[in-house]
Design a protein around this nucleic acid. Structure first.
Length: 193
DNA sequence: CCTCGGATCAGCT
DNA sequence: GCTGATCCGAGGA
């Protein structure tokens, strides 16, 4: 049995959570069916970050970002749904890509495609993934992964901040750009790629 | 009220 | 690489 990631996991620094979510499984229950994906790409949105939806304070749209750690913040942009997991202090981690599990493994490359693959909708906004309802997250296994850090994707403001993290060698990751390699979170600093 | 532009994606050059 | 779709939220007047 795999441990669900609970409140304590999300109630930590956002960069750390963003890195440690890599390899974790995002699971969405749909009646009797469960759809899941291994998370392979994340982005951090932090306090004082002009690109963060929480930057200008709470509104109806972003109120989930001010919820407890582990809250889902789901928003829509250009008719596309994207999902975040809230950490602390109105910071959050955007889930950008995943390896979808099932009889036909597939790659969901991009936050909109990931949500679509798992059936996440705007109705999931505000749900508590740490408590584990329709949506939950399970810890990754112990196999080491190599994490790459780089600039976030698709932003006009604060685009250069290295707040994107992804698993090296994963096909689902969005168009790779400039890279700087770091080690797996539970291991010591590793060799370069 | 009006205007602006976006944490995207698909499709085209 | 670039563009357009397409619409809603945010913010200013």
């Amino acid at each position: 049995m795999v441990a669900r990631l609970g409140r304590a996991f999300f109630d930590r620094g956002t960069l750390r959570v963003a890195r440690e979510l890599l390899g974790a499984r995002l699971i969405v229950r749909e009646g009797q069916v469960e759809r899941s994906a291994r998370i392979v790409e994340t982005e951090a949105y932090v306090r004082g970050d002009p690109a963060s939806h929480a930057f200008r304070g709470p509104t109806r749209r972003n109120r989930s970002m001010f919820g407890p750690p582990g809250t889902l913040y789901v928003f829509r942009i250009h008719q596309v749904v994207c999902a975040n997991l809230v950490t602390r202090s109105a910071e959050a981690v955007l889930l950008r890509a995943g390896a979808v599990e099932g009889r036909e493994p597939a790659y969901a490359s991009g936050p909109g495609r990931l949500c679509r693959a798992l059936g996440l909708t705007i109705r999931d906004d505000g749900d508590d993934a740490a408590r584990g309802g329709r949506v939950r997250v399970e810890a990754r296994d112990r196999r080491p992964i190599r994490i790459v850090t780089g600039p976030r994707v698709g932003l006009r403001r604060a685009a250069e901040r290295p707040l994107r993290f992804y698993v090296a060698g994963e096909p689902a990751v969005s168009r790779p750009r400039r890279l700087s390699v770091s080690a797996s979170p539970s291991r010591s600093r590793g060799a370069a790629r």
